[in-house]
Amino acid sequence: MSVRYALLGLLAQQPRHGYELRAAFEALVGGRDTWEVKPGQVYATLERLEEAGLIAEVGVEKEGGPEKRIYALTPAGREALQEWFHTGVVGDHHRDEFFVKLMVGLLVEGTDLHRLIQVQRNTLYQELHRFTRQRMEADSQTELAYVLFLDKVVMHLEADLRWLDMVEARLEEIQRQPTPQPEPKPRGRPRAKREA
């Protein structure tokens, strides 16, 4: 989703070919280490955008190598981009793998839950260390947007670590509670709804 709209945005800036788009996208999000896109994904996305009428081929560049098709944004593409700008982004907070692991750990007899939490804490600290170093190496005079992105990651990791402490502090209490069960379903055919 993000890649699709990022490509539209980059084409709104100026017409480009696929190779150039890929490099521009990776630069935009903080380098290939942050978010790598495969050339195949770029070309497939361009194809779909063209089919949808959001971009159009406006020329071909041939400098020695193979031909490179240059694309530009269509009016419909410009509209789609504006619509994206004016739509809020909802994060996926529910499908958290560690939360599932914790719940399954509660189910499975003999799981060392303190160890499970410690291992997760170690992993989060290693992440925090990595991003803290990147944050220190980034230059806020020339790459402030990236620095702020790293700040966001660091803040999220801090929150995750705080939450982990909270879970650990209340672990005995959680263990005393029943594990969540599916809601009982009535047997047989569902009864017809009563009239209101």
């Binding site: 804490r121 600290y125 925090l128 803290t132 660091v154 990791l157 801090e158």
Partner: peptide
């Protein structure tokens, strides 16, 4: 403070006078 500790090469976690992790 986790943010501060994250600069280090290694972290020792203490509890009740012992190193626990």
């Amino acid at each position: 403070d986790p943010r501060i500790a994250a600069h280090a090469d290694r972290i020792l976690f203490m509890k009740d006078g012992r190193i626990i992790d």
